[in-house]
Design a protein around this nucleic acid. Sequence first.
DNA 1: CTGAAAGCGCTAACAA
DNA 2: TTGTTAGCGCTTTCAG
Lengths: 343, 343
Amino acid sequence: MQPKTTLKSLAKILNVSVSTVSKSLGNNDEISEETRQRVRALANEYNYIPNQYAVSLRKGTTKTIGVIIPNILNPFFAKVLIGLEEVLSKKGYHVITSISHESTSKEVRCIKTMSRGFIDGLIMCLAKETQVSKAYSHLDSIVQQKLPIVLFDRIHNDLQCDKVINDDYEASYNTTTHLIRDKGCKNIALVSSICGIHLGNLRMEGYKQALQDHGIEVNEKYIINSPNLTDFTTRIPSLLKDKTIDGYFGVNESATIRTINTAKKMNYDVVKELPIAAFCNTSQLRNHPSLIIVNQHAVEIGHKTAQLMLDRLQKDTRKTYTTTTVKASIDYKNQRNTTYKTH
Amino acid sequence: MQPKTTLKSLAKILNVSVSTVSKSLGNNDEISEETRQRVRALANEYNYIPNQYAVSLRKGTTKTIGVIIPNILNPFFAKVLIGLEEVLSKKGYHVITSISHESTSKEVRCIKTMSRGFIDGLIMCLAKETQVSKAYSHLDSIVQQKLPIVLFDRIHNDLQCDKVINDDYEASYNTTTHLIRDKGCKNIALVSSICGIHLGNLRMEGYKQALQDHGIEVNEKYIINSPNLTDFTTRIPSLLKDKTIDGYFGVNESATIRTINTAKKMNYDVVKELPIAAFCNTSQLRNHPSLIIVNQHAVEIGHKTAQLMLDRLQKDTRKTYTTTTVKASIDYKNQRNTTYKTH
DNA sequence: CTGAAAGCGCTAACAA
DNA sequence: TTGTTAGCGCTTTCAG
């Protein structure tokens, strides 16, 4: 290691006290303009960067936000992360990211490492296992510690914190309606591998309600709803062979991909033959010429989530927690309909 | 904030000194077994977690590794990240990630924030802009600071540090050979959007050499090599219309996706009609029934990179730097041929 | 076996 | 306008 540039070393060179240097760098007007300039010049020359650990220890604030996401390979989460970073880093916050790999125990571990001393706030999306088993006790302990927390996408309603979600029910309802009204579909198959996750259930309900509101009976034969992608291997082929089906709705990305690829293996290009709508963030699928994309506006979810965290960090006296909905839009005309609704 | 559990607070309760508590928790045998147990029990009860910032400040070591990747939406990088985390977190290291968005100035900013006080070592993949402009001076300053650094995938040969790469030239050579020998291709089109990146050039050379070695002349008409994806929009259609082409080689993922989707828009299912080989990490493409996948073994690149960092952190007296090659394999038979070669 | 004390680099009262 | 001092939470000599 090179002899590190610290306040002390700068002070020595300039023959002033450490606190003078500290104040100068903080542009404190207790210090004469002249001294401030001398200090700044030298600090610059020596490429001085304050030691974040010392600052944090002293100030009791860390200027870093922890983020826990379930799966980095899902581009939805990658995009949210980009959005988070954009607004957080602009405000001088660092972002440290951990991945729970959809497991509750990993989630607990991540929280434990981050939650004391290390971060000022926690942003997270619940692991699948956590939502399915409804084991939320590890979250309570964060709230008790008064560590600000913002949940996004997969939330736990009872937790006292800010939340950001999609309008999953409405988006699903509208998409199904679009397939019925504009595409003339009557027998719409639904594929989902997020059974058990709350937003998965909402999307399912939106689909069913839209069918009913248009006088179409729900047919369980047309629905694959299993958390296990391997179930798909056996069930998709029979679905695809059912020629009464005249439209598809992929309620999540991996289920959609699995369906399309299985079809390809059977030498059947579903996307070309039938209208397919899907929640989707992969560029691969998004650029697909004929897919009807449900755009979740992941980056904006990141922005909104980060903003809520920032607000909370500034004025945590405010006791009311908000749930913000970022509306998904259907990109069948390449249009963007993003609007926020706070309640 | 709840009154925080610190060494001090535990010491007070137990009526011992802070240092006794500290040593007990460190399982120091200066302290009697009995006392150690009492301390451990209480620490457990109060859910004590040491303040990382204080520890780092005191020890002069941070137990965190900074990672800079160019683009989180590229699943190759996401997978490397997973690999890095797996081995680093097992050794008690935290990982903080920043994204350079392929820009040199962002890269400089990331390095600046991380490089003093904050991290023990830096793992990075160069931004496209950095490689194209060959502006490497910001890296020299890290080396001067004696901060351990490991480069992966897109490296800078002259930098004195450990490196992990794919055998890009050979992988490309072998893939092209496979298309020629096993698939009977003679006129193989190549698409690339990583022109200017060193490994992009290597893959290009591997392709050309394989052609020549099999007595096939390189035809520039068959090659799209532009850093700009929008160029593809104009050039791909004429490529696709050229019926003398009997095989495709996608030298990177986004170029491949763009090509396949453009074909689809033209109602032409290339993948079904012709052999297509591609460097690829997206599950969407990977599961594609008839694609010939060049598997880069991204997760293992992460493992290897992390291991090199760990080694360097332990015994940095060793002066020689190694470049490790993780061999890519061609998954045309769903086989896995991963081997390492260190030179 | 246990404790007192110093100090990592920084900030912020309080003195001068 | 500048400097002195105390202390954030922790580890680690050194003394008892």
